[in-house]
Structures are given as C-alpha cells and as structure tokens.
C-alpha cells in the first residue's frame, strides 16, 4: 500500500484511513529502515493496528497478552539493551494500568521507548468510562523526560510517528479510535515536535486545540468569521510537552484572549499547560479551558460526547462569543516588554 521504506503519504490514503491505521503502516515502513524497532502489544494488536508492523516483522513483534504492566517493564528492558520498542495499547491502559512502569522503568531511566496510545479521550464512546482516557495527558505530562504529542489527524500522526524517532528518549503519542476527519492535505506543512501549527491566522482571540478538536476549532473559526466578523487564530498544539511557549506568549500579546480545547479533563492537560505559561508571563489575558469539566465521562456516541462536553464546533463558537464579551484589565506596559 505504501512504498517499501518510503516516507511519502498520499492524500488519497489519508482520506480513507483512520489515524491508527496510518500509524500501523508508517511503523511498518520505519521497521524496514530501523532494524532495532520492535513492536509490543497487550492483546490489542488488531485494535491499535500495530499488527500491520507485526505481520511484516513477526520476529520483532511481541504480544504480551492482557498484561500491560509487564509489557511496559519488558519494553524498558528491551530499550536498555538497544532495541527501540513501540508499545501500543489503549490510552487508558497505557497511562493508568501501566502507569508506574511507564514512569519509573521507562521515563526515570530516560529510555528510548515510544508509546503509541490509541482510543484516546472519549473516542471509544459507548465503551464508557473504563475505556475513556480523559486523564492520560495530565498523568503522563508529569513524567520528567517524556515528550507528549497529540496529533490532529492521520497525516499528523504519520509525521509524529516518524519524528519521534529523532528523539533519543521516551515519547507518548495519543491518537483516537475512529476516523478523525483529515485536516491536512499534505505532510509538508513543517511539522516539528514542540512547535505549534497556526491553522488560521487571527487577531481577536486565539483558540488552542489538540487532537480531534483541532478540526472543530478550524470550523468554528470559519463560522465566527462569517457570522460575527471575528478574526480567530487557531493553534494546533500537537505537542503538549514540551509546550510551545513562544506561540502562547505571542497569542497573549496579539489577541489577549485564549481558549483551550481538548478531549480530556480540564485538569492537567493542554489547558493547564497553556495556563501555566500565561500565569508565569504575568500578562493579563481572558482565558478559558474547554474539555471534560472534572467529571467521569459517560458512555455515548463519540460525536454526542464531544457535543456534551462542548468541545465540538458549537461549543467552541459559544465559548468564543462569551469570552469576546468579557472585560479584563488593560495592561499598560505590555507593548514595551515584548
């Protein structure tokens, strides 16, 4: 399907495949180039699509059964002796079931392991709370040494999976379950770990999104332009850690109003990471976090859950309108300092 060892991705494929399918194919590609990549899963090879790699390299693929703790510990051991393990399970189990093994064995020892966690956020809809991961970013963001990435679509997933090979250390990449609508039409938009992508230019307010919510933020920006005449900047903050401080500070300076959007609890994820940067800057900024409002997300269809949590287009439009009306103190000396 994809050229052997090739690094090109066609739009046609990205329009048909879910991000996790693209992940499987890209990893199989990388496997031809890097003989010490190994794949690990815990009875979710089919579901996470790491099976594409496993089918191509059966001798370099290890199914640990439904035993995530051992799998992450074993990944650490493999990395210790020079392999590059890609570990795939659902986000809930990668971040919570195997939590301490990821933290202490992999991150503490700063090992070259890549965790590709699928079914992130509320994307597994009707499977309900046990299979939603609305805490994972908060948990893994607190692990020193770990890079945390939430790609916006399939093409960005391909970019992230390739780019993580340039980091000699642990990386956590969180993707969804289903077919997140493609936003990018080509891989060549300058993806760089730690650098936000400006999806829409804007001067009135900035919406900072990650993962599947980027699509909704871009659509919201269009509506707000057409209906309200607003100029909404949309930043795709695909890297949650290290976060792009420069892009956030620029947004504070240029727009003075910021909303974050994530398929995650509002505690500890993208919103908190952005808030930390704003607070440390000492600059005034109207700010709001959209996400799951510190509750366990119920089961339901994914699109309904995005709507319920107000992180779809309608929710973002509503919050932008609210924040545009909010008064806040002017900061006199701001202009001199930047």
């Amino acid at each position: 399907m994809t050229p052997e060892g090739g690094l090109s991705w066609t739009v046609y494929d990205a329009n048909k495949l879910a991000p996790r399918e693209i992940y499987g194919i890209v990893l199989a590609d990388l496997g031809s180039i890097h003989p010490n990549i190994v794949g690990l899963s815990a009875d979710l090879a089919k579901s996470t699509k790491i099976e594409t790699f496993g089918n191509k390299f059966p001798d370099r693929f290890f199914n640990f059964g439904i035993a995530e703790s051992n799998m992450f510990g074993a990944a650490a051991g493999m990395a210790k002796v020079g392999l590059i393990p890609f570990v795939s399970t659902f986000s809930a189990f990668a971040s919570m079931r195997a939590c301490e093994f990821l933290r202490t064995d992999i991150c503490y020892q700063n090992l070259n392991c890549k965790v590709i966690a699928t079914h992130g956020g509320t994307s597994f809809g009707s499977a309900g709370t046990t299979h939603h991961a609305i805490e994972d970013l908060s948990i893994v963001r607190a692990f020193a040494n770990l890079t945390v990435i939430v790609p916006a679509d399939g093409i960005e997933t391909a970019n992230a999976v390739r780019a993580c090979m340039d980091i000699d250390g642990p990386v956590y990449i969180r993707i969804g379950r289903g077919f997140e609508p493609p936003i990018f039409t080509t891989e060549d938009y300058g993806f760089q770990i730690g650098k936000a992508v400006e999806m829409c230019p804007g001067t009135d307010i900035t919406v900072i999104a990650c993962g599947c919510t980027v699509f909704h933020a871009v659509n919201a920006a269009k509506i707000l332009k057409d209906e309200d005449g607003l100029s909404v900047r949309v930043l795709n903050m695909h890297t949650i850690k290290p976060i792009d401080e420069e892009a956030i500070l620029k947004a504070v300076h240029d727009t003075r109003r910021i909303i974050t959007v994530e398929d995650h609890n509002v505690i500890g994820g993208l919103g908190t990471a952005v808030a930390d940067v704003i607070a440390a800057s000492g600059k005034g900024c109207a700010f709001n976090k959209l996400g799951v409002q510190d509750a366990f997300s119920p089961h339901g269809y994914p699109e309904d859950l995005l709507n319920l949590n107000k992180i779809d287009m309608d929710g973002i439009v509503e919050k932008v309108r609210e924040l545009m009306g909010r008064e806040f103190e002017a900061d006199e000396d701001w202009e001199d300092e930047v």
């Binding site: 499977a127 309900g128 299979h131 089961h299 339901g300 859950l305």
Partner: peptide, 13 residues
C-alpha cells in the same frame, strides 16, 4: 443499549 444517555453501555456502570 449503548445509546447516548441510556443506562446501559458496553461496560455496565
């Protein structure tokens, strides 16, 4: 069963 807002999902609450 499974529908948004119902009492019954794939993993019972």
């Amino acid at each position: 069963f499974n529908h948004t807002g119902s009492n019954l999902g794939m993993h019972l609450d």
